[in-house]
């Protein structure tokens, strides 16, 4: 559906996107993940024909964004960052306008406006001026605007910025629902958002794609040393000695006395090694009371931080 080939974009002498290539299949929800200024918005702006690439190109449904841009634009519904809208217009007038300008002579199709209004929950504010609406409603108007022509591809640039937690969940649910029959690109720097809505993640850093795959795949491939946290009581010294000799254990870090004779320990294990059963048996053997045990999993957040160099 979308094919980006060796895309490079310079702003003056600053390199924003550096030789990026990827393919997006029809019907997938792809998350563009990256820190601010990583090149997400620039990539998206090239796909939506707002900017031209310095070299390389992008194809949307086999139409080139540079030579066949009008066809590309017809297929895409786009919500730019911060949902820019005309503040002195009514919601319904605005949606009507956006649809009219997209339609050819054939005239507007009221049905799509109606469904997008319903999907975005705008029925109560249809006749209010956009300037009077709250941030959450404006974001929804922006989303409704991207849906008025029932596009095959939906591109959303940070759609949940500035929303309260309830609104964020509503928008995410909406994106998931839309993802059933549309191809969606979602730009975000918020990890849970991408984890919750996307079935593929592209992590972008400094203009390059540094990881590509399903959220679970990324977690699996970046799983490093395992970490097990335990809280124990009694016989600490003998337990520690035996624990360190256990196969697969790399390091035991004592976090000190938390409460009287209780000790919190972090056990670092070799990659892909689950020692929870062994630790339990060791406790029984040593007559140490095991109060808590928790295995830390690599989250997408760890993957993200490792790849984008935020972890020292």
């Amino acid at each position: 559906m979308i094919s980006v080939q060796n895309l490079t974009k310079y702003y003056g002498s600053t390199l924003a996107v550096n030789n990026v290539s990827f393919e997006i299949q029809k019907g997938t929800v792809v998350g563009f993940l990256g820190p601010n200024g990583a090149g997400k918005s620039t990539t998206v702006r090239i796909i939506t024909c707002y900017l031209s690439p310095s070299s390389g190109t992008a194809l949307v449904d086999n139409h080139d964004v540079q030579t066949d841009s009008l066809e590309v634009r017809k297929k895409i519904g786009y919500l730019p960052e911060n949902a820019p809208l005309y503040h002195d217009m009514n919601v319904i007038d605005y949606l009507q306008f956006m649809q009219n300008i997209r339609k050819g002579k054939s005239g507007a199709n009221g049905a799509h406006i109606k469904t997008s209004v319903e999907r975005c929950g705008l029925n109560e504010v249809l006749h209010k001026s956009i300037g009077e609406l709250s941030k959450g409603y404006r974001q929804r108007v922006g989303l409704a605007q991207a849906l008025v022509h029932d596009p095959e591809i939906l591109i959303l640039d940070e759609p949940t910025v500035g929303l309260d937690p309830n609104q964020i969940i509503e928008i995410r649910n909406l994106i998931r629902e839309l993802g059933r029959d549309k191809t969606i690109i979602l730009c975000s720097h918020i990890l849970p958002e991408v984890e919750a809505t996307c079935n593929r993640v592209l992590i972008i850093n400094e203009g390059r794609i540094v990881a590509d795959g399903a959220p679970s795949e990324l977690q699996a491939s970046f799983e490093g040393r395992g970490k097990i946290q335990i809280l124990i009581k009694n016989n600490l010294d003998t337990f520690l000695g035996k624990l360190e000799r256990l196969g697969g254990v790399e390091k035991v870090i004592s976090e000190g006395n938390s409460d009287g004779d209780r000790h919190r320990l972090t056990v670092e294990t070799e990659k892909g090694c689950d020692l929870r059963e062994e630790i339990f048996r060791l406790c029984v053997e040593n007559q140490t009371v095991l109060l808590e045990m928790k295995r830390e999993e690599t989250s997408l957040e760890d993957v993200f931080r490792r790849l984008t160099g935020r972890e020292e």
Binding site: Y50, R73, P80, I101
Partner: peptide, 14 residues
Amino acid sequence: RLGTIELLMTLPLK
């Protein structure tokens, strides 16, 4: 200023 230019220029509009 509003940023609406970005939306207009990504419509099928020359």
